[in-house]
Structure formats: C-alpha cells, structure tokens
C-alpha cells in the first residue's frame, strides 16, 4: 500500500504545482496587456493624473510579484478582489453562478455518464455490425456539431414549435426542483448529446482494446460464458480506462458549458466569463479562468488517482 500512497501523493503534488504555474500564467498574462489595466479601464483619453490616481488605488505602483502574491493569497480564501467595471466583489458576482453551472454540469453528467458507458459497451460488443457503423456515423456527427447548433435546433423544435420546454433557462426564487429540472432540460440535453458521443466512442475504443488481450481469449477458451468474460475478466481491468473516459468528458463538459449557457441565457459562470471578457473586466476573467482550470485539473487528477487505485499491479506490489 505504501507504493500506492507515494504515487497518489506524487500525483497530487504535481497537480498542485501545475495549478500554481497556471495561476502564474493567468496573473502575468494580464501584465502583458499593452499599456496596463488602468489604461484599459480609462481608455485612450485618460489624463495622466487620473491614470496615476487609479494606479495607486489598484496598487499598480507596486512590483508585479508583490501583487501576484497578494492576489494568490486572497484567491486561496476565495477572495478575488472587486470588478473594475461594476466595483462589486468578484466573489459575489460569480459565487452563485458557479453553483448554477455545477448544477447544470451535474444534471448533464448524471444522464450522460451511465447511458453512454452502457451504449459504448454495447457498441463494442456489436463491433463491425451495421449498428456499430450507424452509431459511429451518428456519434461523429454529434461530435462535429458546435454546441450552439444543437442548442438552437433543440430550441427550435422543443421550445418554439412544440412548446414543451422553455427556450430561456432563467432561474427564479422559489422554484420547485421539478420546475428547475424542466427549465434547465434543454441546456442539459445539449450538453448530454455532445458529451455522450465523445464518451461512447472512447468507451468503445477502451473496451475493444481490452477484449483483444490474450487473457480474454484465455477466459473464452476456459469455457466462460460471454457475460462472465465481460463481468469477471474484462470489467476489473476496464475501470482505469472508464474512469479516464468519464473524467476527460466531465472536463470537456466544463468547456461546453460556456457556449451552452450563452445560447440558453443561463445564469452560470460561463456567461459571466464571456461578459467579463467583452468588457475586459480582468479580475472577473482571472477568477473564472482559475476556477475553470482548477476544476479541470481536479478532474484529471481524479482520473489518474482512480487509475492508480484500480491497477492490480500497483495494489498488490511484488
């Protein structure tokens, strides 16, 4: 067990270092801004006095490294300063939105993960049949479609033509959980369609790869029935690839969520990020990027740790 703990520990350490490097990138990228933030806020027509005053107010007269350390230590306590456009606290702007985004992603994941893994396994077992080929073409088509294309098609039919779900996924106080599910169904479905295609293809590839191994042939030649070959011989070795597939796609969900939120005007963090980018509200952009990157790294970390924990060679060292 000692080996596993060291491996997991090393992996966690690496994740932390990467996160740190990313925080450096996110912070110092803004330093590369032609001119500086104060200039960007006030525009070309600002007088030197105003600029100097704002710089002092924002602490821009201090060296970058000092400001980075201050920013980082506050960011760890989830305090990202205040917006330079509205003066509101960044945490207030994105706090609730982040929960909304998590809800949407979880909603999509709860549907997509089991369905696509089951479909992926079925397609892998039926490989090279007509169903496999049709599934291949369909999943490729979904992967190739931009999220907004799928989103607008769903709006056009489910919302405008058939009126089954609302086109705009707005949230209000005092909604019941069922109402919430109904309102957010279309954005969730869009995400499900995109992620499911990816996940199904990856599961299929992982399972086919596994079924080609000699020990599966051996199990067959020992007279094990097909279900037992899958459940007893393939599955215990399939966890690592499947965990990997799930984590990768959850990570993919995070990116997809930005576009979907914009299509459905959903009050999530993606929407906030896009607004902040077009208004050049850097504290908000930095906070959102850091949160997205942290989630992304966390998911990849979970995949790697999962793979380590389910590897029999590591669980039972020599």
């Amino acid at each position: 067990m000692g080996d596993i703990l060291t491996l997991v520990g090393k992996r966690l350490g690496l994740g932390l270092i990467i996160l740190l490097v990313i925080s450096l990138i996110i912070f110092f990228m803004v330093e590369l801004l032609p001119g500086d933030i104060a200039q960007a806020v006030l525009g070309q027509s600002a007088t030197p006095e105003n600029l100097a005053a704002l710089r002092r107010e924002m602490g821009l007269d201090q060296p970058a490294i000092v400001r980075y350390l201050a920013w980082l230590s506050e960011a760890i306590t989830l305090d990202f300063g205040s917006s330079i456009v509205t003066d509101a606290r960044v945490t207030e702007i994105i706090g609730e939105r982040f929960m909304n985004t998590l809800f949407l992603a979880a909603y999509a994941a709860v549907i997509a993960v089991p369905v696509s893994i089951i479909l992926g396994v079925i397609v892998a077992l039926l490989r090279n049949s007509i169903f496999d080929r049709v599934a291949n073409v369909i999943s490729l088509s979904f992967i190739s479609s931009p999220e907004f294309f799928l989103g607008y098609i769903l709006i056009l039919y489910f919302a405008v033509k058939w009126g089954m779900f609302p086109a705009i996924a707005s949230l209000s106080e005092g909604m019941t959980f069922l109402e919430l599910l109904q309102r957010t169904f279309l954005p969730a479905l869009t995400l499900v369609l995109v992620v499911m295609a990816h996940m199904m293809r990856m599961t299929r590839a992982a399972i086919i790869n596994l079924l080609a191994s000699p020990y599966i042939e051996m199990a067959r030649l020992k007279g094990a029935p097909p279900w037992k070959v899958i459940v007893k011989h393939a599955l215990p070795n399939a966890w690592a690839p499947i965990i990997n597939v799930v984590a990768l796609n959850l990570a993919y969900l995070i990116t997809g969520v930005v576009l979907v939120e914009v299509v459905f005007v959903y009050p999530g963090i993606g929407q906030a990020l896009v607004d902040a980018v077009s208004k050049r509200d850097f504290p908000v952009v930095q906070a959102c990027c850091l949160i997205f990157a942290a989630t992304f790294i966390l998911l990849n970390l979970a995949a790697d740790v999962g793979a380590i924990l389910t590897n029999p060679r590591l669980r039972h060292p020599k």
Partner: peptide, 10 residues
Amino acid sequence: SIPSLIFALL
C-alpha cells in the same frame, strides 16, 4: 491543463 476555450477567452 487549461481548458482550450477558457484559455482562448483569457
């Protein structure tokens, strides 16, 4: 380890 769309936006 930065999601591509997010990095692009940044």
